[in-house]
Design a protein around this nucleic acid. Structure first.
Lengths: 244, 244, 244, 244
DNA sequence: GATGAATGAGTGTTCATTCAT
DNA sequence: CATGAATGAACACTCATTCAT
């Protein structure tokens, strides 16, 4: 499929940080050549393919993630791919779940440090962006999954939403969150998930590529979700900013 | 390309409403056969190709929108395509801008009816979903554009955000919106745009396919954006619901 | 699929007669480059593909008849193949029916010259072998069709058998053939078809490659079918031999 | 390889009788796990591979008889295959000779019971079909060998023909067969071999799948070979039918 | 300007064979 | 000697684009 006219500036700027180059795909350091056991060797190759796929998808998108590109980058023969994955789609379907779980774990761990509901949400918000910084391929893997791995995408969103909802439920039981019926909590969860994604798209991968989300964006975000459009006037002062 | 594991339920349920069928693609009524002038004829063909592409992308996604499928559906020869568009990507890049403008116009017109800021936002929110109902291809064209027509996607989001920001600026000048700095307005805009998209994904195209966004979701949304997480307790009563 | 160890002497000896060489496949004289009309051009290419496929299958077998080999030999691009045939199998399925009809026509025309039943059968028998001489690819196309184009094979055998049966019926009505019930005529037909095929395999394509079936084989054949095992003693004298 | 348009009804009907199932290939009972000696173990594995290959080829044809399928069915690793056979073709080449000898032995034993030449031939004819019933894989192994194991095919036909010829020679010496020169006996042999094969194809594996060759076909066959086309009128009465 | 056949690079996948363990 | 992962050449087929008519 023809994709030459795609504007990949969005992800290409980060690419240089993530990998050496993309035109001449350099194979991963083939560390498994001297693996102790056969099992270990197999594990390393599988991981190599997985990392290669993550990198290719992160840099060029699912569309261009051909078996040829992936195996070349992993430093193995094309046929080897099928010893480890049933099909191209099979691997593609595993990308998001695997990385998604890491993200969830990281965000959850960071958020727990907060004392109030809003503080925890802000910490989680910041943690999402610090995860993005450490895993530069995640964002594209996540976003394009909607088109290229819809099942994985749905599962991921459901998982994150479920985490959010139980987070809210605990807050509601603690009296920190009032005014929402139970089924409405999922709506809130989706709005906050959506916000993270769009704000990352705009302020991290946008035209003025930032390495991290600007502080003033976090402030605005906290203002909005804590008091809404109407309550922003009396919102918490800027002094309470926290670094993730 | 292997797509068997794709879960197309997301869009397929709507397809029957949107088009006659998808297995046997019925060509558009080739109305240009008897066009008065040569120019008119050209215009009609171009439009036919455009509509065919919208339908194909809406039903099957950008990925499957091959020239062959599009021209077949438009009832013209493959070669004709290149008399009207520079390339496949050229047409694909025009899909979202064109439909996006329609959406913006519809939403703007509906929103203007509201008296307060929150009311206008709710009306706009509802208008987004009524537009989706009338233009069943739009959602997929919009969402997959992030992967397949990134320039168009960026332009669309920038356009919508700009509209939102000036909408907020007017509200701020009218004293309806306080507490946000000017540059923060864009953050708010992106959060609200994000919310619409994710909530549509979840509640319109989600597992329990609704034709329209459920009312209680609108309520929860209004609660959140008007008072935030903390102010939801004193949120506006349910009686103020408005139908778009 | 690995076929290197196949003993292709069976068909390779004839190959040199049929085509220049097989290692370096020489493209057919691309006579269509300068075709008058587009339709003519298309027809010529289609025929070129068909002839190329016949040659490849005749010389190397269905197994090795790859699209690459066929198109190379026809002097067209690989993609061109699919403008004329739905799939590789589609073309392969047409090989036998097309050539089979030619064979039937040739054999039928020759056989009609005979005065008695036995004479007509002998003429038909000889005509089968003269057809083989003129169409050196036919035998392999016919035989391997049992494995590679079973539908075509069955249709071909049914067609030939049907011709045979009506030939016998007419003979029976003329009093030339007695002692067989109607349904038994098909059994006779299959035995005679079988005989032609096996005798060709043995005496034309066998180790001592003959260009034509030896006369003494025809004699033995006539002896057998005219008087059977028991009546061969009083069989017609050798003097009645006829040349096709 | 594309095989969808293959009509496998020919062999599929028998498959259920021949093996448990074909979709889920059940490994042979791996009886060699507890073999006494190392040699014994090796022999058992070799036999297992051989039987697995026979089954796979009989059910799916040579084409689909991949090393993977065969070893899986035999319950051994892929690599093990090459400890017992030089190559895939090496095993495939041994299939027909081995089974062919069984067939020859069975047919010869049955035929010897007949008193006259014709009776012995009829008994052999019937024995061929009873062998087919007991060895449902044989027919396909035999027929496709012409394409996939031509050396083996040639050897098999030569062997059977040789047996036939010496059978006829003895009959000739006994005065039961007159009128054929010595070299003509091979012609007769090939015609009778051909008849068996084609009649099996038509009346056992044909559209109306019979478990055995119908009696009236045997009658017609005997009529033809005993008296030929001309002597059928005075052919032996139907009362002489014999069951194999 | 409409046509539709020709093009050929590119795809995902299979499979006989090798070989280190 | 059994194992099973690694290999890479080969395959059928797709498709955006070109261009002669």
């Amino acid at each position: 499929m023809e994709t030459e006219s795609f504007d990949n500036r969005l992800f290409m700027a980060r690419k240089t940080a993530a990998t050496r180059s993309s035109a001449t795909v350099p194979p991963d350091p083939p560390g498994w050549r001297d693996a102790p056991t056969r099992d270990e060797r197999g594990r390393l190759i599988r991981e190599g393919l997985f990392r290669a796929a993550s990198a290719v998808v992160g840099e060029r998108g699912y569309q261009e993630a051909s078996i040829s590109l992936i195996t070349q980058r992993a430093g193995v023969a094309q046929g080897t791919f099928y010893n480890h994955f049933k099909s191209r789609q099979d691997l593609l379907d595993q990308l998001l779940p695997t990385l998604g779980k890491d993200m969830l774990e990281h965000v959850g761990r960071c958020a727990r440090e907060g004392k109030t509901l809003i503080e925890r949400e802000e910490l989680g918000f910041r943690a999402f962006f610090s995860f993005l910084r450490e895993n530069p391929h995640f964002f594209r893997i996540l976003n394009e999954a909607e088109s290229f791995a819809p099942n994985a995408y749905r599962a991921h969103l459901d998982l994150v939403a479920a985490g959010y909802v139980s987070f809210f439920r605990r807050a509601a039981q603690a009296g920190e969150l009032r005014g929402f019926e139970d089924r409405e909590l999922e709506v809130v969860a989706f709005v906050l998930m959506a916000a993270r994604s769009y704000l990352a798209w705009r302020y991290v991968y946008g035209e003025e590529q930032h390495d991290d989300i600007p502080d003033w964006v976090v402030t605005a975000y906290r203002r909005l979700i804590s008091g809404g459009l109407e309550g922003a006037a009396e919102s918490t002062p800027a002094g309470s900013r926290v670094r993730a």
